[in-house]
Nucleic acid binder design. Structure first.
Lengths: 258, 258
DNA sequence: CCACCACAACTGGTCGGACCAGTGGCCTCA
DNA sequence: TGAGGCCACTGGTCCGACCAGTTGTGGTGG
């Protein structure tokens, strides 16, 4: 117990380090630090075997991991070598989707998270949105209205455009990306149900009204009101698909104002 | 433009399919369907080369991807072959970490995001926290107090424990993971500055007071108040490290109640 | 002079075999 | 019966080879 007890736990568990992990970490590190920017190229696999002092198999395992994480992309015959990619939410989306597929995360949690994101996004957008962005929201709203008679798919597309504009107007990339991902996963879960719903026309009309109210609040620069309306809108739209006993979790977010 | 225009876009772009992807998809599919449960084993690599009809290199590339996604774990000498893992948010954490590390994300955005996460976490925790969790928060608070004289590092550890308990009490994994990751990145950016600050003792005492207020509100089951106090606490603690011209972005989140 | 085309030098994708250092189960021996 | 050692098998790594495809280039024909 002597020297081992310098912290609260004795020793850190150590897991065997594999060669390819070292490569992955080095590359990721350079990407994080900005020393390797999107569009730049990694050396070719054969070149990397020399630089890292490992076999091509090892290099390839590292590249497969980096590729599956969306950090690089490699194509045969590409002169420059594997390309460093710009950040994309694809990998984030994959992770969330997997959690959902495995019942680790339910629709209630997703909608709850979306409510808090969209609420804050609208709160910020009400203060920060430029005239262009306000106009874009108005356009998206018009398209939603026009899509009432053109089917749910088109309506949904315009709806996404609306929310995306709001998220961008929040000036916070984290809100923007997370909103995008969660929205995508939620839509993947229930868009079919809405499309098949007999009363979808009514749903769409009510949603349209909610969006109009939200946009009005944003235009008036009334952030708290926009936030509350946005949360209510989401609740109204999705609560029906959430199990009764979990809806209170969503309602808890409705009256965030005291 | 004839038959191609059946949708709004002509054709789906098709990317070359590589052998290892087929393996990854087959395995993931079985895992999602529950045909492959946590604790079960995949065949050994050499066995899989036979079953999939590919070389061991290809099998290994698939395993590396699955392993990096937290689906399986393989250890040398493990008789049963690679083990199917239970689902953990580790992969989600990795993705969020990458998002948050993108250098275009500034401290203001991070703190802003943390404010909205912690605000909602406290709002929910005030309703949902069990007695055990309330007790754990109290313990963490006591440890923060006890750590006042034991240096910033220990104080920070107790602080993290407090916030982590709150996040868990929110019963939302997404909030939990995002809070954890964002908190870690924020601390990584400024913990050294706080540790070196001449008035850190005063900072710690004020923070302690804020945490006590938050816990009090949670104990009283006053969610909105807990949320507001939590946001204020974060603002008070971190605003000094945010450029003056960006602080208004944080203040916008303070008075979320109208 | 320019446009085009065939070639050659790369790229990654896949394969097969080889060796090593471990692990873990089994079997033998005390 | 228990403890020990043996050995088959695991994954980790390396090597060398071949293929298919892309791409840049240089030559050729207009």
């Amino acid at each position: 117990m002597a020297a081992a007890d310098s912290g609260s736990r004795p020793f850190e568990p150590v897991r065997p380090v594999r060669a390819y992990q070292g490569i992955v970490e080095q590359v990721e590190d350079r990407v994080f630090r900005g020393q390797l920017r999107p569009g730049e190229r990694l050396p070719s696999e054969r070149e990397m075997t020399a630089q890292f002092g490992v076999s091509r198999s090892t290099v390839r395992e590292a590249l497969r991991v980096l590729e599956s994480d969306g950090v690089v992309r490699s194509r045969p015959g590409d002169r420059g070598g594997p390309e460093v990619l710009a950040f994309s939410p694809a990998s984030l989306r994959k992770s969330v989707t997997r959690l959902v597929r495995v019942d680790e995360v339910g629709l209630a949690e997703l909608v709850q998270f979306r409510m808090l994101l969209e609420g804050s996004a609208n709160l910020l957008a009400a203060t920060l949105a430029s005239d262009d962005e306000l106009a874009a929201m108005g356009t998206a709203l018009s398209e939603m209205e026009a899509a009432l008679d053109r089917g749910y798919e088109e309506f949904s597309r315009a709806d996404v455009a609306f929310h995306d504009t709001v998220a961008r107007a929040s000036r916070n990339i984290l809100i923007q990306v997370c909103s995008d991902v969660v929205r995508g996963v939620v839509l993947g879960l229930i868009s079919q149900k809405i499309a098949d719903a007999p009363d979808r026309r009514e749903l769409m009309e009510r949603s349209l009204g909610h969006h109009a109210d939200v946009l009005d609040a944003v235009r008036r620069r009334d952030g708290p009101r926009a936030a509350r309306l946005a949360r209510e809108s989401l609740y109204d739209y999705y609560a029906g698909y959430v199990p009764e006993e979990e809806r209170s979790l969503l309602r808890a977010l409705l009256d965030e104002d005291g």
